[in-house]
Design a protein around this nucleic acid. Structure first.
Lengths: 341, 341
DNA sequence: CTGTTAGCGCTTTCAA
DNA sequence: TTGAAAGCGCTAACAG
């Protein structure tokens, strides 16, 4: 009476009840070989009677595969990455693949991420998908010698790895361009964390767009945030303090855009009448914010789906080819033509 | 060359390298018995040299426990439940418990949820935590005979089960009361899905508050949504069509409140000047919406933490007692005193 | 087609 | 203390 309840029924019991050998049951379960119809029926009956479910751990041990894929995200509650998790979930479940995802969070910390990797290794996952991540390429590549790897937000090359990435520089360019086309000339930017590759690329795109339009790049109009709401909040305050009177704002992700917008609201600065805002990501919430946020759509769900499909193929030793993810400006109501132009 | 890479190092190899028997290594790993210091050192050295990690599946098979707990959520991308997932994650990781959560999504579908249960059973999880869920009590109780269960949003009784719940009726009352205190007399309500217990309780609280204040309950001022943004959007349209001129709105969750607010924004109805809105849940985003949403705070993260702690205790055969979760009105800027009162 | 026989990597008596 | 040996539940040759 330890609360564990009766032990689960085993394959052997099924075999006994059906009057066949364990191997036959196994074969039927896995479709490994042809079996006489009568036996199949008996076995299936026994399985149903006993409500038998194969012990995945035992299967795993025996065939050297855990039937699970490790997924490293940064925060299980991140509105952006979760869309990707959903895509991964659907991909693995959809194929009836039998694979289950094992989600772990690295929280943007190298050590934390290393622990995650370690945990997943201990559980002998058959494949690994890393959403961005902060661990270094070398470590990743090392793991990739042991199992297939798909990674996003990075361009890693290797025999057992596929990387999925989008042209963030171009998207940053497009976003800024959108503002320029609306007649804005003083365009501020709230960038993401220094070390973040995506953030760097978006910033580069911003710079290029200004240059190509022969607009000056004013460094004081570039603030840095942490990709969270508070970061946007702080950054916009800093921008406001410059008194440089920008009329438009390109924010490196939607979460920071929310924070920025709150500050503007509090100060009575209207969006988009006084300042236009364009974000990045197109979180589900952006469509319902007031006003609905103009932003760059990142197909997070699709990206997760691709990642899931890719890791499955890799595990099965198939070839994978991944197109570059398209990024697209979604014009909604937080941007408008500059007044007086 | 199947891409699987070299096989991982085993306990036996460690034993060999350290010049001891496998059992000794096992004992050192698990602290199962005292071992001579010299051997311990040798083993630890070998483990380090070989970068050995125990195979969790093999451990699981041998000791009849998978070291994982199944978690059924409804949508891996739900802003509300994800906070709870985070709490669960922290709880399991924090204790250095060695347990890992296995997250699966039921998508509010009975069959889907049954599949989840089945998957978790096949993986022999040591415990189960179900976030609300739509599966019937009987099925749940049945699973609880096989493993400990903690469930939220329901009041289930059983030997191996603990349920965590909050007084939603009272919270619905408090929310409505807040509006009444601000001088509102025509208060509309957007309720959650018919079958949802929490939704029913919140609605009941709304009714009671009106009655106790001697305010009439106008049925046309009660609309039903699906707990998503679109639901709120549709519902508020329906409410507006009644032309009943409500000045305040109690919405059964924040997501629907966002949808509702968007409609009002589009129609030029100001929040809170023209209509006050109070939501429910206090999603992280609500603090950053414009204006910041007054709402009822549900401590989703803490709830997850409690659930995690509880399942761990249950698994270890310890007693658990759970307090009723406190729910609290958080006054922000989407509600204000009715004009002219 | 089907049963027998070894393991998969680890834990856990049982003796020593 | 420590090692030998017997499994945990399943798969996968290898013979028939």
């Amino acid at each position: 009476m330890d609360g564990r309840g009766p032990n689960a029924v085993t394959l052997e019991e099924v075999a006994r009840r059906a009057g066949v050998s364990p191997s036959t049951v196994s074969r039927i379960l896995n479709g490994t070989a042809r079996v006489r119809e009568s036996k199949r029926q008996a076995v299936e009956q026994a399985i149903a009677d006993l409500d038998y479910r194969p012990n995945v751990m035992a299967q795993g041990l025996a065939r050297g595969s855990s039937m699970s894929v490790g997924v490293i995200t940064q925060d299980i509650a991140s509105p952006f990455y979760n869309e990707s998790l959903k895509g991964i979930e659907d991909s693995l479940a959809g194929a009836g693949s039998g694979y289950a995802p094992l989600f772990v969070s690295g929280h943007w910390k190298k050590e934390k991420e290393a622990e995650c990797l370690s945990l997943l290794a201990a559980r002998r996952v058959d494949g690994l998908v890393v959403l961005t991540g902060v661990v270094d390429d070398a470590t990743l590549l090392d793991h990739a010698t042991r199992m297939p790897l798909v990674i996003t937000g990075r361009n890693l090359q290797g025999p057992n790895v596929v990387s999925i990435h989008a042209d963030n520089e171009q998207a940053g360019f497009d976003a800024t361009q959108h503002l320029i086309e609306l007649g804005h000339t003083r365009i501020a930017h709230i960038s993401g964390p220094e070390g973040n590759l995506d953030a760097q690329a978006r910033l580069a795109g911003y710079r290029r767009a200004l240059k190509e339009a022969n607009l000056p790049v004013e460094e004081r109009l570039i603030a840095t945030g942490d990709f969270h709401e508070t970061g946007g909040l702080l950054a916009v305050n800093q921008l406001l303090e410059t008194r440089l009177n920008f009329t438009a704002l390109f924010v490196a992700n939607d979460q920071m855009a929310y924070g920025a917008r709150l500050v503007l609201y509090r100060k009575g600065i209207r969006v988009p009448e006084d300042v236009s805002i364009i974000g990045f990501d197109d979180l589900p919430a952006s469509l319902y914010s007031t006003p609905p946020l103009t932003t760059v759509r990142q197909p997070a769900y699709d990206l997760g789906k691709m990642a899931g499909d890719a890791i499955l193929r890799l595990i099965h030793g198939q070839k994978v080819s991944i197109p570059t993810i398209p990024l697209q400006v979604i014009v909604r109501e937080s941007t408008m033509r500059r007044r007086g132009t």
